[in-house]
């Protein structure tokens, strides 16, 4: 099986990487229980691109997301959001960074149950001091199709609607980059494709940068670029993926 040669990086992306990892190493535990989740990963996430990360279970995808999003720290190497090296930030600065520059979508349980849809979307901004761009927030909420549910609480929403709120929240603060760890992993394929196409539009039309972990080749096909992780290393990379291409690649990597 021949690998698709990586497409030449665009001049644009060379200049602005929304986030990047440099020789990222993450080791959990020590001694006998030591697990190396990331070994020397270096990767750029171009601004304005939708990147998918794939790989077998335990390959280090979540770990990479968490370390890039400032939710966890690398054992060595460096992660940058914009030009900021995350290791230089203390806990408070990391929190600020998560609040202002990074959006995160978890597989489930993304919402604060006591807040309604709109409050959940604006939560990161409410936590900060800056004012709200109401028009933009309305637009985001409308785009995810929840304009008529703004006053509802999470327990009044379906799982898919809840994930859409999560996506809206991740985008609402116009972060430099949005990370999603299997954001549609719990959803049926129809709902899942709704959300994915919305994310795709957010990238194409609103200029957002999104990095998403997925197990599903069809989900990956919504992205501009797919990174394949195995055993804590990037083993392959594909531009402009289609479901079939991704599927084939996974099969070939598995051999």
């Amino acid at each position: 099986m021949t690998m698709t040669p990586p497409a030449p990086p665009s001049a644009n992306s060379q200049r602005i990487a929304a986030a990047r990892a440099q020789n990222a190493v993450k080791i959990y535990g020590s001694g006998d229980t030591e697990v190396t989740a990331l070994r020397n990963v270096s990767v750029d996430f171009e601004a304005g691109k939708f990147t998918a990360i794939m790989g077998p279970s335990g390959s280090g995808k979540s770990t990479l997301m968490h370390c890039m999003a400032g939710l966890d720290r690398l054992s060595s190497g460096e992660a940058f959001v914009g030009t900021t090296p995350l290791s230089s930030l203390n806990d408070k600065q990391l929190t600020m960074m998560r609040r202002e520059q990074v959006g995160f979508i978890f597989q489930s349980f993304n919402l604060v149950p006591t807040l309604n849809v709109r409050e959940n979307v604006t939560l990161p901004m409410d936590l900060g001091k800056g004012g709200l761009d109401d028009a933009w927030i309305d637009e985001v909420i409308r785009t995810v199709g929840l304009a008529d549910r703004v006053a509802h609480r999470p327990n009044e929403l379906s799982g898919g609607q809840q994930q859409r709120v999560a996506v809206a929240r991740a985008l609402a603060s116009r972060p430099d980059i949005v990370f999603g760890d299997e954001p549609t992993g719990n959803l049926d394929s129809k709902t899942s494709s709704d959300i994915l196409s919305f994310m795709q539009r957010a990238v194409r039309e609103l200029g957002q940068t999104i990095v998403m972990v997925t197990h599903d080749p069809r989900s990956a096909s919504y992205s501009d670029r797919v990174l394949f992780l195995a055993d804590g290393e990037i083993v392959h990379e594909m531009q402009n993926p289609t479901t079939e291409l991704v599927y084939d690649t996974i099969k070939s990597l598995g051999d």
Partner: peptide, 16 residues
Amino acid sequence: TREIGLMRAVGMTRDQ
């Protein structure tokens, strides 16, 4: 716990 983790993840400081 999970809710607290989530709020911290989206930018709530320890003080908050």
